[in-house]
């Protein structure tokens, strides 16, 4: 693994390796080990073209627990907002010797672009690109499901996961569909037709327009954030109508399996896609997801730049010449 751009880049074995590594790291931190010297001297850059405090601090915590030097490079107030191109930014980071670049960008494919153009030779980690993918979110979601329902072991065969809401604009949904399917889970997408992409029938999932019909079969329901702007783009008539049909409420919680869990990638719109009491019900693992996010991101950083990187190997070759 050189980069983590898309769940598609991972084999099932690699995905499980990441989860297993995250389990080890998570257990260690429960033992009280907060910091490892593993990435000492490595530079990790958080390159955020889009505001996302929670993802950025999660990656930052992960990198710092591994003793990496962390540079936060955010678009606001920097040359990025003055029209500096992705390419120039990448070349700056390259000159600074970034070992890993964690990129969040509002353009789908931006992370691929960064990695494929050889603008930088460090590892590229996609922290969300447009409406395409958010692989570490999917990994932490799979980790959370596996921890709660599979005792941290193996794959997710036999489980049914419902992903509910704005599938069309959701990179979380895209990465989760790829990963959960790879791990053997059955995925059902639950949304109004306006919020499902044309072509969704090629995703290998089932689709339901009725939350009530499928909620009882789900082992996990993943609520997606619904942006209020969507209403203005005619995706649904009113917030009230949306939340009646697709919101997670106390009544719907009561329809769920005893063992089932409720997830949300955050930030939540309480009262729109999820009611406050649902978010805090005993089925909710939303807070756990945040903690698991750090372990999963530590695992990804460790596996990408903990061992010899391409650059290390090239340097060694150079020394031998």
């Amino acid at each position: 693994m050189k980069n983590l751009l898309s769940i598609d880049d991972l084999t099932k074995a690699e995905a499980i390796e990441i989860l297993d590594t995250a389990v080890t790291l998570s257990n260690l931190s429960e033992t009280g080990v907060k910091k490892f010297p593993t990435l000492r001297g490595r530079t990790v850059v958080n390159l955020f073209f889009e505001d996302s405090t929670r993802t950025r601090i999660s990656f930052e915590a992960a990198a710092k627990r591994l003793s990496a030097d962390v540079i936060n490079f955010s678009a606001k107030g920097s040359s990025l907002s003055k029209g500096e191109s992705l390419k120039d930014t990448a070349m700056t980071l390259q000159a600074m010797g970034a070992d890993a670049v964690i990129i969040r960008h509002n353009s789908s494919g931006a992370a691929h672009r960064l990695a494929s153009q050889k603008w930088i030779d460090g590892a590229v980690i996609n922290a969300g690109d447009g409406t395409r993918e958010h692989p570490t979110q999917a990994l932490l979601d799979a980790f959370t499901i596996r921890r709660n329902l599979k005792n941290d072991q193996g794959d997710l065969k036999g489980l049914k996961v419902g992903i509910v809401g704005d599938i069309l604009h959701s990179r979380v949904a895209r990465s989760n569909v790829l990963l959960l399917s790879k791990l053997g889970a059955e995925v059902v997408l639950i949304a109004p037709p306006t919020l499902l992409p044309v072509g969704v029938d090629s995703w290998g999932t089932s689709v339901s327009y009725s939350f009530d019909e499928v909620i009882g079969d789900c082992d996990a329901v993943m609520m997606l954030r619904v942006q209020k702007e969507r209403m203005e783009d005619l995706f649904f008539p009113t917030e009230r109508e949306y939340s009646r049909a697709f919101g997670l409420t106390k009544d719907r919680i009561a329809m769920m399996k005893e063992s089932a869990i409720v997830m949300h990638p955050g930030p939540m719109n309480r009262g729109l896609e999820i009611s406050a009491d649902s978010a805090e019900s005993n089925k909710s693992v939303i807070v756990e997801q945040v903690a698991n996010g750090v372990s999963v991101r530590m695992a990804v950083l460790y596996l990408l730049i903990g061992g010899a990187t391409t650059r290390d190997l090239e340097t060694h070759l150079g020394e031998n010449k």
């Binding site: 080890t24 490892f36 591994l66 061992g307 010899a308």
Partner: peptide, 16 residues
């Protein structure tokens, strides 16, 4: 995670 030769080889699996 504490080895001093981590960077000489591809990443190794962790053990519990």
């Amino acid at each position: 995670m504490y080895r001093d030769d981590l960077r000489l080889k591809p990443p190794r699996n962790l053990f519990p």
